[in-house]
Amino acid sequence: MATSIRFVLAALLALVTCVLAVAQGSAERGRAQFAQTCGFCHGVDANGGAEGPNLMRSALVRHDENGNLISAVIREGRPAKGMPAIPLNGSQIADVVAFLHKRLEESDRRSPRKPDYALKLLLTGDAEAGKTFFFGAGGCSKCHSPTGDLAGIAKKYAPPDLQAHFLCPSGVAKTAIVTTSSGERFSGNLFYADAFRIAIKDAAGWYHSWPRSEVKAEIHDPLETHQELLSKYTEADMHNTFAYLETLK
């Protein structure tokens, strides 16, 4: 039974992958087709060109479902607007339709994407000046070493991740020492803290919590210095330090 379910699941997965691949392939073929037959007027990205409008702003394109609206326009053209009929066959039209829908997805963005830039765009700082900042005014060398914890850091992170990560690292737990009213002391990683409650996990992994008003709590944030630095960096400090860290391959 389990084997047959696994088989069905595997077959379904293969089918979905296959359908996606076909759609992807169609959109890619459509990209080339569009550039060749439509790009001069509408631009190769369909963002508008020499004569034709930006198709990302076309109600017809946006209301199209599987070519039900776009196909006729390609086949028959829009003579009144100066667009000729385009002699494409059925599968070529399907590819262009797939490409236009793909372009809508690429173009429409609700929120800023994560940066995935090439290093050359980001690398505008002076690595030597960054090194001076690292060992001097920045105070970085008080906690970090280019041959110790930071050795190979530029290999570990993609450039934009390294830029964000050195400015504001994450994943290092805060610790807390909690002293109860009877004088008992607990220490461990801070699990939770708000205005009214505090909780830790001790070295053995056990959870403890208290009303904040009934205990004394000392919280230590190992990343506090990074937060303080955020308001001190000049743009040059930031770019220089990044350039220096990028040398630590």
């Binding site: 994560k114 934009p160 937060q227």
Partner: peptide, 12 residues
């Protein structure tokens, strides 16, 4: 590029 024309990394 695209509607946003940019990217962002949230820090602290």
């Amino acid at each position: 590029e695209g509607h946003q024309g940019g990217a962002a990394s949230p820090l602290w």
